[in-house]
Design a protein around this nucleic acid. Structure first.
Lengths: 146, 146
DNA sequence: TATTGTTATACTCTATAACTATA
DNA sequence: TATAGTTATAGAGTATAACAATA
């Protein structure tokens, strides 16, 4: 059992390092939590989104979304309105201030992504893409059975 | 900015799912924390190890190692002796009970690793191995510059 | 002065569930 | 009965630094 060649360990260490390098941008420079970043990035992409859908899209749970939304609302980045089609739900909308914030962050995180992948050629990128999907499917299967 | 195709996001979600599937073994079935698992797995591999080296090897910080070691010692899994070559340090040694525990866990986590990677052919595994190393090197570079 | 390792503290995060309102 | 969402709370985890012992 050699930790350094154990795939789940290598993946965890890598993901932590990668996450941290991105969090340095949205966190340290723009004072967003990981949850706030995911919610506002999703909203910047979609413009408007039901709260329910946000839970799936960000792979956060409903409490994390609830709190991130509350904070982003306080900061004036997003607005939350009752869903006219379902009295229980809410519709989230990005506000100009939120869009301006995301417009500052996105180029920086995309630049980091490019830097991280810069050593990979096209073939390696294609395999990486496929491998992430395949392993994710397997991990989901494991998660469902326990 | 589409989260679902953003590499750091995909990596984080995958690593979380993979970690959880492994934690289900050492955590739920054998009551070890992630930190304890890393420390005892390292010790099972090396037999004896200086505390200082454990920090590097497990990519945990010194407090996490300190606490994991204390708990494993209480459980009778490992022993901690003063380092004869450095009065400040300690040498960690795995005990029979610890070795027996690791012998039960290792086949189960290796089986999970094989399951996770089962859809990948040899070429894909080789690329995955190379890609993890390349991206890790890049992430370290980013981490060092900030 | 610097390093090893432990402890203290405050803070954040997380998990569980209780709860309201609506379907 | 089930779902959307908020709130409460307790436990775990985290970061920072202070600290003692040794180098």
């Amino acid at each position: 059992m050699d930790l350094s060649s154990f795939f789940p360990y290598r993946l965890a260490v890598l993901a932590e390092a990668v996450s941290q390098s991105v969090a340095l941008v949205y966190g340290s420079r723009f004072a967003l939590s990981r949850e706030e970043w995911r919610v506002i990035a999703a909203l910047a992409d979609k413009g408007v989104m039901r709260n329910v859908h946000m839970v799936d899209y960000t792979t956060l749970d409903k409490m994390q979304v609830s709190r991130a939304v509350a904070r982003l609302e306080t900061k004036g980045m997003i607005a939350r309105e009752p869903d006219p089609e379902d009295g229980r739900g809410h519709v989230l909308r990005i506000l100009p201030a939120g869009r301006a914030l995301v417009r500052k962050i996105v180029p920086m995180v995309l630049a980091r992504e490019q830097f991280l992948l810069a050593d990979l050629d096209d073939a390696e990128r294609a395999v990486l893409d496929r491998v992430l999907a395949k392993v994710m499917a397997r991990a989901k299967a494991l998660g469902e059975q326990g």
